[in-house]
């Protein structure tokens, strides 16, 4: 047994879980301490602990919906969240609590008061701060085992593909058609899935776009019929807090399903949710 394994073994203790069974677990404090003395990241110590069948207490309540094996896969995964606003804020926090190993957060903007109605990373005290950098700060408070990298920039051209060279899934939490099409083109070139989300009023939608799918083009490409397209419904209806908070978990669930290779993932299937009408419909795009 390596020194690291011995360190973890010595700190493991019996813990009665929510199902009444005793399991071996380890605290955040002990994980942090071992990472410090072994000069490794907390994420690496977490994964090693899980591989030894010792569950970090912070992940105990994920079980059995997320098994120890699943938790290891999540910890070894990288997800890019493009846009850290209404959808992105919730998506980032959920991925962080789930224990995704590495998060890339791309957003060029700073928080302003119009974001306070819906953006979960936005507070009265962080006005004017870069959204991507705030994501790093807030994730560190939620789960230091997640390595978060901020890119204060827009995704504007396919040359930015290198940013995502180790990414397993891209999440589209953007707010305009042009950037979304660039992002779907990048994900296609990378050969990785992109999970699309969009909101307007009390409605929202989600769709997983796999490389080669045509769905994003159908949703966002310009028909060029000689007349200008109307502005997005979000400019007519606004974006209250509810729809971003509802659609983000659907995006994160789709991401987890991809990472854990769990269940059927339909191609070009758009799920639309209307909170006000309390209805949900799926469409083949």
């Amino acid at each position: 047994m390596s020194d690291l394994m011995t360190d973890i073994e010595l700190k493991a203790h019996k813990w009665k879980n929510h199902m009444g069974n005793y399991v071996r677990a380890i605290s955040d404090m002990d994980l942090n301490h071992i990472a410090e003395i072994r000069h490794q990241t907390i994420r690496e110590i977490c994964i090693q602990s899980l591989k030894m069948g010792i569950t970090p207490l912070r992940y105990l309540r994920n079980s059995p919906s997320i098994s120890i094996e699943d938790q290891i896969i999540l910890g070894e995964s990288e997800v890019a969240v493009v846009g850290a606003g209404g959808l992105g804020g919730h998506v980032i926090q959920l991925l962080c609590r789930l224990g995704i190993g590495r998060l890339l957060v791309c957003d060029p903007d700073t928080f302003d008061q119009t974001n306070l109605n819906r953006q979960s990373l936005c507070f009265t005290h962080n006005q004017g701060m870069f959204k991507a950098e705030e994501a790093v700060r807030q994730c560190a408070l939620i789960n230091p085992a997640v390595e978060v990298k901020a890119h204060v920039l827009s995704i504007t051209h396919s040359g930015q593909i290198a940013l995502f060279s180790h990414t397993n899934v891209v999440i589209d939490a953007l707010d305009n058609a042009k950037d979304r099409l660039i992002l779907s083109s990048i994900s296609k070139d990378l050969g990785i899935p992109m999970v699309h989300g969009a909101v307007a009023g009390f409605e929202g939608r989600v769709m997983t776009h796999f490389p080669g799918d045509t769905g994003m083009n159908t949703l966002y490409s310009s028909e060029k019929e000689g007349c200008a397209e109307s502005p997005g419904a979000e400019h007519v209806l606004g974006t209250p807090a509810l729809a971003p908070a509802l659609i983000a978990p659907f995006q994160v669930m789709a991401t987890v399903k991809i990472l854990l290779n769990r269940g059927d993932m339909k191609h070009n299937c758009l799920l639309h949710v209307d909170l006000e009408k309390m209805s949900m419909n799926s469409f083949m795009v």
């Binding site: 846009g83 606003g85 209404g86 959808l87 992105g88 589209d172 939490a173 953007l174 707010d175 305009n176 058609a177 979304r180 989300g197 969009a198 909101v199 307007a200 409605e203 939608r205 966002y220 397209e229 109307s230 502005p231 997005g232 419904a233 979000e234 007519v236 974006t239 729809a243 971003p244 639309h272 419909n281 469409f283």
Partner: peptide, 10 residues
């Protein structure tokens, strides 16, 4: 029949 406007909010 279902009709949608453009939707792009995030």
């Amino acid at each position: 029949l279902g009709l949608f406007p453009p939707i792009g909010g995030g």
